[in-house]
């Protein structure tokens, strides 16, 4: 499945991916306490809310995943 060409492409991507962003330099650490960008947000939403919600969701879904995977193996 692995082609040498694809490996080469992937290997250099980490360093050259910066070049694709025109104008601004991506990768600055996200300021979690700042209000969110864009028109989808509610006024008081902070960027950090997304991370908190993701952690909560991962905790909620993990036991479900394990239970479902175990059930699937039994079948």
């Amino acid at each position: 499945m692995k082609s040498p060409e694809a490996i080469a492409v992937a290997a250099i991507l980490g360093t050259v991916s910066l070049a694709f962003a025109a104008g601004t330099t991506p990768g600055k650490p996200m300021k979690m306490d700042e209000p969110m960008h864009g028109e989808m947000k509610k006024q008081n939403m902070k960027k950090g809310d997304v991370k908190k919600a993701a952690e909560k969701k991962a905790l909620k879904m993990k036991p479900v995943m394990e239970k479902e995977a175990a059930g699937a193996q039994k079948r």
Binding site: S17, L18, P26, M30, M36, M40
Partner: peptide, 18 residues
Amino acid sequence: FNAYYGEDEVRLVDAASY
């Protein structure tokens, strides 16, 4: 570009360890 953060805050993912 559209996200809940600014374009300068785009998360960089390391290709080699991904």
